[in-house]
Design a protein around this nucleic acid. Structure first.
Lengths: 163, 163
DNA sequence: TGACATTTGTCCTAATTAGGATTATATTAC
DNA sequence: GTAATATAATCCTAATTAGGACAAATGTCA
């Protein structure tokens, strides 16, 4: 994280507001999600798998921003809850296809809109649509500064996150 | 976290850029900090204790944004490394005062400026000073939306974070 | 002063987190 | 076609994460 003592620096003063805003969001969001019986990471996986036939672990990792080591455990718990299912994928015997079960689909249809409705007012009360556009632009510039886009060959692999 | 499927919503579309920017920063920053032999959370504690006589756990928790349950363990590890020290504080036998040891002070004087210099270019390359000001304003509005300031009596307690 | 609530820090638990090692499979280069 | 390399997913580890329970100390209020 970092924190208090960068207040004077004209650039690093952004750091604490960034962490504070993210953590405030994350903690409120996570607590709400857990009322629905899943963790925040599990929720991310469920949302990602909704409306898709299935995804490979590498794809899921890239979309959910969960690193590979973490993802295995998250999927284990979702599988033991009967929410997702791992199947082989034709053509590559290394990969697996992670899919929602019927129960998982039901859950998705409930939790996704519910949580979207829960979160929206927090953003709406803080920022106008125009401000959202501006902030999005700045945030993406910041992201790209820390994590330059791999210009070369498209990597479908873990490398998109790291390693 | 959350993720991909809010792209259309005029407010929730901010969510993914926020998470991506924060995580990109956090991962780069953490890896760099760990090269110096401490974790990101340990670094936060060290930075907070630099230039201070000592802080109580509640104060440290508020400043570092580390929740109480986590903080105990972080302090345990810092103490066993000889970086911090817990002492009793006069006047309240419940509280303890966490201080940097001499070794901890030395470490602080090295790691703090080193890491500041490491981080600065990432921000500088992404945003102008004016953009930093604007973004700070928006981030704080977002934070306050998720975590309203307790208008009433100042709470010095864990409640500032949660519970 | 006594009852009652609050605060402080620790302990405990389930889960996440990230990175490195590992095994199995694909892909590439020669 | 085989050797070298890269990728997929899992396993392993140390550490963080947050919340609830807890005991001790302090504060409040009648």
């Amino acid at each position: 994280m970092m924190l208090t003592d960068f207040k004077r620096d004209p650039y690093l003063r952004l750091l604490r507001p960034l962490v504070e805003a993210y953590l405030a969001f994350y903690r409120v969001s996570s607590r709400q999600i857990e009322f629905m019986g899943v963790t925040a990471s599990q929720f991310d996986v469920i949302v990602e798998l909704g409306d898709v036939d299935g995804m490979t672990c590498a794809e899921l990792s890239k979309e959910t921003l969960i690193t590979k080591g973490t993802l295995t455990g998250v999927l284990d718990r979702l599988e033991s809850k009967g929410i997702v299912q791992r199947q082989g994928v034709g053509g590559d015997r290394r990969a697996i296809l992670v899919c929602l079960t019927n129960e998982g689909q039901q859950l998705y249809k409930h939790v996704f809109p519910t949580h979207a409705d829960f979160l929206r007012p927090y953003f709406k009360n803080a920022l106008s649509q125009e401000e959202v556009r501006i902030m999005t632009k700045y945030l993406l510039r910041l992201r790209d500064s820390f994590e330059p886009v791999a210009s070369g060959k498209e990597k479908t692999s873990w490398n998109n996150i790291r390693d």
